[in-house]
């Protein structure tokens, strides 16, 4: 077991040199350390200007996603150990414009998330006095997997299509749309269809499948997208044989 390990950290200081570069830091190695612990050691003891996002340190806030040796991961849930002897290359997530160092700009995703209306839509709201909307365990099971998303953006970073076609609505936003489409209490599938059925909705996806592989919460956005394609296609061909139905 080595005493130290080297980290090659992506630095981008727009007010400084203006072009990004890799800076190498040597940090003490501990078996139980995650990549995030090493970054914190750098920030606390070597270079306080290093910028990155993190919060919960336990894989639920979804803010510490970065590219480590080419793979998008949550740095709080990724040990240093498998990367020994190093050096370990830490970069911001692919697919997002970099604001500074390891911090990406996620505005684009936030806008797309709003477009798919990730909330329960009712044609007529029931008043609280009429009681809650009941749901059976089977009905919950239909969407529960998609509700585990923590918006960590690893799926976007893993998706070459998002990087190639920035207009693509993307894996997490579609999985979250399906989270509500498949909810028995929701009546908003038609409204979401407006966005999902665009070419830049589900149809940009070519099923690379990496989004589901990197997802730390096993949400399976690739599955959500393919299911939506199948349903939309069946609806379309049914509408051809059944006049009066619109796709």
């Amino acid at each position: 077991m080595p005493d130290t390990v080297k980290l090659e950290v992506f630095r981008y200081r727009p007010e400084g040199e203006g072009e990004p570069l890799y800076e190498t830091f040597e940090v003490p190695y501990r078996d139980e350390w995650m990549v995030l612990d090493a970054l914190n050691q750098i920030k606390d003891h070597q270079d306080g200007t290093l910028s990155y996002r993190w919060a919960c340190r336990m894989g639920v806030c979804g803010s510490c996603g970065m590219t480590v040796n080419g793979e998008p991961v949550l740095t709080c849930a990724t040990y240093l150990e498998p990367f020994l002897p190093g050096p370990i290359r830490v970069e911001p997530l692919h697919g997002f414009p970099v604001i500074r160092d390891l911090v990406g700009d996620l505005e684009d995703f936030v806008g797309k998330l709003q477009r798919v209306k990730p909330w329960i839509i009712r044609e007529e709201e029931r008043s609280p006095s009429e009681g809650e909307y009941l749901q059976t365990p089977e009905e919950m099971d239909a969407y529960k997997r998609y509700s585990m998303c923590i918006n960590c953006m690893l799926c976007y970073a893993a998706c070459p299509i998002y990087e190639l076609e920035p207009g693509f609505i993307g894996p997490a936003a579609i999985a979250l749309a399906q989270r509500y489409n498949l909810d028995s209490r929701d009546e908003g599938a038609r409204e979401r269809h407006e966005v999902l059925a665009e070419h830049e909705g589900v149809w940009s996806c070519t099923f690379v499948g990496e989004c589901s592989i990197v997802c730390p919460k096993d949400v399976d956005p690739a599955g959500a997208i393919q299911r939506y394609k199948v349903d939309a296609t069946l609806d379309f061909f049914r509408s051809l044989v059944t006049p009066g139905r619109s796709p």
Partner: peptide, 23 residues
């Protein structure tokens, strides 16, 4: 506001990762 740095997909992006090559 700071100026964004944007990376561009190389034309041979599908060689970047084994999974992309397989794709």
């Amino acid at each position: 506001h700071p100026r964004w740095y944007r990376r561009h997909m190389p034309i041979f992006w599908w060689l970047r990762k084994f999974a992309y090559t397989k794709f």
